[in-house]
Amino acid sequence: MRIAIVTGASSGIGRSAAIEIARRGTGVILTYGANARGGQETVAAIEKAGGTAVALPLDVGDTGTFAAFRDAVAEALRATWRRDTFDYLVNNAGISHASLLEDTTEDTFDRLMRVLLKGPYFLTQRLLPLMADGGAIVNTSSNSTAMAGLEPGYSAYASMKGGLDVLTRYMAKEFSPRGIRVNAVAPGSTRTRIADDAFTRFPEVVPVLAAKTALGRVGEPDDIGAVIATLVSDESRWITAQNLEVSGGYNL
């Protein structure tokens, strides 16, 4: 059985990706931050469908915890699947913050950097010795890095995601001798709990975003999760170093 690690899978895109990957017969180690209940709910959904999953806590913004997390992953692999390695890594955990450049604090900038760029960089580095050759990595980026149609307020957030896009290509280059493919997905506006559950707090933005989307609605987590599951699978065995926008044609 193949095994995947999916970070930030207590809700939203991460939960959808974990469930869809498991539905295709892959075991899942999923992580949660503050939402432990959400992590267990994702495990329950996978198990109800006949899959196998383990939930582990992880603060992607604190690299000092990564060594202990690696040990927890190694133990879960042995105890649950009797394996020493895993096959797929989905660097999905994230946060969002919107503020104009003139109003952005260094603390906000640094927090975004730690979670969205430094975290995936050093978590991947830490987990590489446990990753089997011939596997795959998917990084969750954002269409906020696009060349046109930008929305004011995302200069810091999008800069980190832009860095992740570049990192994706370098990972693909450096890991290719081991047959490890690396790609990114760039969602558009997606109905998740990110930014303090903004879609629930500001429902009036939904029709505005839908009007800007060629396919006429905002994205749902399952729209993205299905693509992530496809990219880690053997169906995508000849795809690497790509950043696939999954936005329903936002600003098309």
Rank of each mutant, 00 (worst) to 15 (best):
M1N: 14
I5M: 02
V6H: 03
V6C: 07
T7F: 08
A9C: 13
S10Q: 02
G12F: 04
S16T: 01
A17M: 05
A18C: 03
I19F: 13
I19R: 13
E20Y: 09
A22Q: 02
R24T: 07
G25D: 01
V28S: 05
A36E: 11
R37Y: 08
G38R: 05
Q40V: 10
Q40T: 12
T42P: 05
V43A: 00
V43N: 06
A44C: 06
A45L: 13
I46Q: 05
E47D: 07
E47L: 04
K48E: 15
G51Y: 08
T52E: 15
L56R: 02
L58C: 10
G61P: 03
G61W: 14
G61L: 12
D62L: 15
A68R: 14
R70E: 14
R70Q: 14
A72R: 15
A72E: 13
A72T: 09
V73D: 03
V73L: 02
E75L: 15
A76K: 07
R83F: 08
R83Q: 14
R83P: 00
D84F: 08
T85S: 13
D87S: 10
D87G: 00
L89E: 02
L89F: 11
N91T: 01
G94H: 04
I95R: 06
D103M: 06
T105Q: 02
E106M: 14
T108Y: 04
F109S: 08
R111T: 15
R111Y: 09
R111M: 05
R114L: 12
L116M: 08
L117W: 08
G119H: 09
P120K: 03
Y121V: 11
F122L: 14
L123T: 01
T124K: 08
T124N: 01
Q125K: 14
R126C: 12
L127V: 13
L127G: 04
P129Q: 14
L130Q: 14
M131Q: 00
A132Y: 04
G134A: 11
I137D: 04
V138Y: 00
V138W: 01
N139P: 08
T140E: 01
T140Q: 02
N143V: 11
S144T: 15
S144C: 14
T145Q: 05
A146E: 10
E151A: 12
S155Q: 03
S155Y: 12
A156R: 07
Y157P: 01
Y157R: 03
A158N: 10
M160V: 01
G162Y: 06
D165I: 13
L167A: 14
Y170C: 10
M171I: 11
F175A: 01
S176H: 09
P177W: 13
I180P: 00
R181A: 00
A184G: 05
A184D: 02
P187V: 08
S189N: 11
A195M: 15
D197S: 13
D197N: 15
D197T: 10
E204T: 15
V206H: 12
A210M: 07
A210N: 14
A211G: 13
G216L: 09
D223K: 06
D223R: 03
I224N: 03
A226I: 04
A226M: 11
I228Q: 01
I228H: 03
I228D: 01
T230G: 15
E235T: 12
R237S: 05
A241L: 04
Q242D: 06
L244W: 15
L244N: 00
E245R: 10
V246H: 00
V246F: 02
V246S: 00
S247W: 05
G248E: 05
Y250L: 03
N251Q: 07
